[in-house]
Design a protein around this nucleic acid. Structure first.
Lengths: 364, 364
DNA sequence: TATTACAATGCATACGATTGCGCTATTTTT
DNA sequence: AAAAATAGCGCAATCGTATGCATTGTAATA
């Protein structure tokens, strides 16, 4: 581990010709080039420089060229903090989500960043760790930073949305995604749960399954309810008897999943197929089933909502996954937000549903 | 999809008591409370208000209370854009990395955000998509935004570091992580490749393996070279003959991996163990081996550098993975950066190595 | 030629907060 | 009681940029 100091030899333009002025401490500090500097050197006013740099029509071609030329030579770059302040616009959007590390959210962020970048917007991130207080703190920070808009996936425990509705007063539009509130009064982008669940269940029924089990997440989760509702709906349509003991809940842990599986498998008529809340759960479930000597995709069939990118490598994958296109969700959310940000008039909230797709796996 | 407008009923403090002033268009715009407003209402100067809000000792207790009281009532919150501008400090760090979606980077970002948040810093992100031009553009944007520091994992193709060295002139410290430059003149945090590789190879040799194959990434990658060097070093120390035909390279695609495997397995004396560059590669390699009727962990043994969180669910996982602790790397990088940011004097660059750990998998 | 039009530039202010310095009144010291 | 110290507050400048309006000079019009 060596102790070299950074010795730098600049070769690129924009970092050259900075003025070094000695400060009181005797150290040298940089004075970055400003329009003021340019104005002084050319003996013209700052307003002229400002306009010249923006190609304002009222500035003569000659001065325009001189200004732009010198600006380039000095390596002038506008101080965005000043512009943000003056213009009351930061070209920044804030993203709040529970955990950056989860594949789904990482994919979403990736999509958000891509769209934001396309429109010259910056992306500020904050993870709530599913903690409501953190979520509120991030909102406040974003608000004070004057972000132009916020995209958020709610913390698991957020019930009260006041900290978001209040943003309306500050002209800061909000778009929810994935974990969205139920009210239609908000902009939201989410997986089309009814559609996806319908697909999955219909598929299983076509394959001849009549007793289909469900492993939901916690009862409080909106998605659990939606899944169950759709499940019942489909069965009703097909005029099948609904057996609620086929609907299990779990806390998303391995143990919780095992319990749910146990309750399902110990039924007098156990399910021949199981629809699980996500890949993490389904993998635990499959493991459990196999430990009970049940053959995957033979004695029992699994379908789940996809979160993991690599089910293709699994020896015993679920028969199918419902791909939710996290990146696409992020992109849509960002587009919707930018639309809101850049619209003159207030737009009524939109509710975008992303339709999933059944991806079939063959075990390796 | 209904078309409700947002109708908001505020219940929390900080969003109340905003002044609404009609603008030229006849619409109502918010005038957010400022210290100026507070000053006017209390008939005192703005400087007094500012100091009162900061608990400055030269302000009388009485006025202090009055100010803080009113500020609270008005829901005053400082305009950070103004403060950033004035203080020439944004409490923001920029993070540049190739792909947000990769597990490793997502983990790193998570760690960075956690530490940043702990210190009241914000995190701005930008993904380079392994494109050097994008990388430069992001650096410029960050520079103009006056971020206080930058953490970066280099694009695969970045050779020239001028766009980073130039930041020194702007007093913006930089910390590299994971994909770091070779020069010791930079702050960097990275996986201890020699140490990890040494661990892996020693382990395999203890298990009796004498012909150990390597599947590297592309030759240009620094990690490929490091891995090979360490490999040779270990063999030399053990006085074993070095056979360079045991070192293969691949382009990280499935096909590339297959080719590499083919070249290794077609040797007169094929390897009995293979060390692969990462989990993606190793999974493809294992698949290939199995397609050739080789039994995983029996006919041939695999070890790789971990990227994926769920090797535990694999039927045919590598025998072991070298965990690289992405989150920890992010945390370290953030800590190092904050240290640089907050140090009065210039610190000499530090080079932090994160030691991996062998994680042993049992197939499920 | 007198008048008007317009092209090109400068002046002044604002954005919101911080801070060095100066001023006044009160209290403490001698 | 006079001098010195201090507590408490205001003035004004500053950060870098943008922009409405006034100003100047020149060219086009009548």
């Amino acid at each position: 581990m060596s102790g070299y100091h950074l010795t730098i030899r600049l070769t690129n333009d924009w970092a050259n010709s900075l003025n070094f002025i000695p400060d009181p401490m005797g150290m040298t500090t940089k004075k970055l080039p400003t329009i003021k500097e340019i104005a002084k050197q050319l003996n013209i006013s700052v307003s002229t420089v400002s306009r010249a740099l923006h190609d304002h029509p009222s500035i003569g071609l000659r001065t325009k060229m001189r200004v732009q030329q010198l600006a380039k030579e000095m390596g002038y770059e506008p101080n965005q903090t000043a512009i943000f302040f003056k213009q009351r616009k930061t070209f920044t959007i804030g993203v709040i989500l529970p955990y950056l590390i989860e594949d789904f959210f990482a994919g979403a962020i990736s999509g958000i960043e891509a769209i934001a970048n396309e429109h010259k917007y910056n992306v500020l991130i904050g993870q709530s760790n599913d903690d409501v207080e953190r979520e509120k703190a991030i909102v406040t920070a974003f608000k004070n930073q004057r972000v132009d808009g916020i995209i958020v996936s709610l913390s698991k425990h957020t019930k009260n949305l006041d900290h978001f509705t209040a943003l309306e007063k500050y002209q800061i539009p909000v778009v929810f995604f994935d974990r969205v509130p139920s009210s239609n009064a908000f902009n939201k982008v989410a997986f089309d749960m009814p559609h996806g669940t319908h697909q999955a269940i219909s598929y299983l029924m076509e394959k001849g399954h009549r007793r289909i089990g469900i492993i939901n997440g916690p009862k409080e989760m909106k998605s659990s309810k939606e899944r169950t509702d759709t499940y019942m709906e489909v069965l009703q349509k097909k005029r099948l008897k609904i057996d609620m003991s086929l609907v299990a809940y779990c806390d998303l842990t391995k143990e919780g999943t095992a319990e749910a599986m146990e309750s399902l498998l110990s039924l007098k008529q156990p399910p021949t197929a199981i629809l699980a809340m996500n890949d993490y759960v389904v993998l635990d479930a499959i493991q459990y089933a196999r430990s009970k000597k049940l053959k995957n995709n033979k004695d029992i069939v699994f379908v789940s909502y996809a979160n993991l990118p690599i089910t293709q490598y699994l020896e015993n994958p679920p028969m199918a996954s419902l791909e939710q296109y996290p990146k696409k969700q992020g992109e849509k959310a960002a587009e919707l937000l930018l639309e809101q940000i850049n619209s003159e008039t207030e737009i009524s909230p939109r509710n975008i549903l992303i339709q999933g797709e059944m991806i079939f796996h063959k075990g390796k």
